[in-house]
Structure formats: structure tokens, C-alpha cells
Amino acid sequence: MENIMLPSPHKILSIVKETQAEYTFRVAYEGETKHGQFFQLSIPKVGEAPISVSGKGEGYIEFTIRKIGRLTQGIFGLQPGDVLFMRGPYGNAFPVDQFKGKDLVVICGGTGMAPVKTLLNHFYDHPEEGKSVHLICGFKDLGCVLFTEEIEKFKGKFHVIPTLDNSSAPGFETGMVTAHIGKIPFNSFEDYNVVIVGPPVMMRFAALECVKHGVPEDKIWVSFERRMSCAVGKCGHCKINETYVCLEGPVFNYSRARELLD
């Protein structure tokens, strides 16, 4: 029987400092992952935490991690060549097949851009699979902006609205992501999907705002962040009602997500 709690070592290939508190770690990895999935990363002695795959390529995957507590601090102390312990991938994924041939709107805030970035790159690399892509990505201020180069790159093919919560800077709008949802030409779409990922409050208000603009609930997809100890349906931490976020999530259709009540 496979030991689902046992992590294996993976070498860190490179580290990119995105912001003061967010680094992207490129880690050696062979294998498939789907858009929106996550791994349990750990450092022995420190602990374990769920982190989404933010990028992937030949022989590696990337994690973009925000330094916030014990484990993430520990990871920030690692250097290229050190090992990171991992198990996964876990969780479901964004239903890319359902997105094919339709317009796509992605609304994300802060580190919430990490789990949707491979999805965005998929449609960037395969424009023939999608239609239009609208991206609203919000950050607190200029110092918090992630993935600057890729956002520039996305502007080549997508409609991108980068925004800062309450400051202004060249190339950025000002205001929360919710303030820009009205700019999405929902009426001109034939069929479309909306992906929202970010802090819980942001997801709630962005979803409400979309619904206000006539987006049907079942066209909206969100990704949940919960306390997780096991990621394999055993420890109980991520459970909401009859649903285990680590097994049935983290991606949920909003029509289901709104029935999950804490």
C-alpha cells in the first residue's frame, strides 16, 4: 500500500524574489500536474503546508510562496541546491475542458494569482483552444506586485487590468478588483467562465459583484484556502459540512461553494 503521508526530497533549482515577502521556488519534478492542484511542502523539523503549483515546465514545477509563518519562513531560508520535501499533487483542478472555445475571465488577488498562473499560461500558449481572456489582477501596492514580467507578457494576448488597492502607478489602475468587474464585456460573450482566486473576503465580494453584473452562479469558479494537515481526507481540518476541500476541492463551482457553510 502506498504511504500517502510520506514526502520525498526534491532539489531546489532556482529562487526568484518576486516581492519582499513572496518568492518563487523552482523545484525539480517529473510528472503531470493539473491547473489548480497543490502539493504538501515540508521541511523536516518545521512542518508541512499546502502550496499551489504556480508554474511548470520540462523537469520542474514552481511554487510561489508568501512568507507568513513558521514553515514558509523556513522555506525562505533555503538555497538553490537544497532539498524541499514534497508529496502530491493533490486536489481537483480547474475544468479546462469546459473552458475550451469560450471566453475566460480571471479575477485574482495577491498570492491568489499563483494557482491560476499555469491556467493562464495554458491559454496563452494555446490561443486556438480559447477565445478571449480577460484578467483582473489586484495587488495591495506596487511593492506587492507578483509576476511582473508575465503580466507584461499576458498583455500581448489577453485583456489585462492590473490594479493596486489604493495607490496609483504607471500601468496600473487603482481600486480593488471588484471596482473593475464592470469593465468586463459580459454581454458580448456567447459563453464564458469566470475564475476568482484570492483571500476569502475578496472572493466573496468579487463573486457577488459578478452576479450583480448578470453572471450566472454556475459560470463562476473559486479556489478555497483552508487549514490542511493531511491533504488526503483524513485529518479533518479542511472539512466543511459533508465536503473535504482537499479531496473535492480546492476548486469549486460557485453554485456549490456557496452551499458550504462554516
Binding site: 500500500m1 502506498e2 503521508m5 481526507g233
Partner: peptide, 11 residues
């Protein structure tokens, strides 16, 4: 929980 909710737990 341990054997049927997701993959079985070895321990």
C-alpha cells in the same frame, strides 16, 4: 474515514 475517504492510510 481512514480507509475509504480518499486513498487508504497505511498506518
Amino acid at each position: 474515514i481512514f480507509l475509504r475517504n480518499g486513498q487508504p492510510d497505511l498506518y
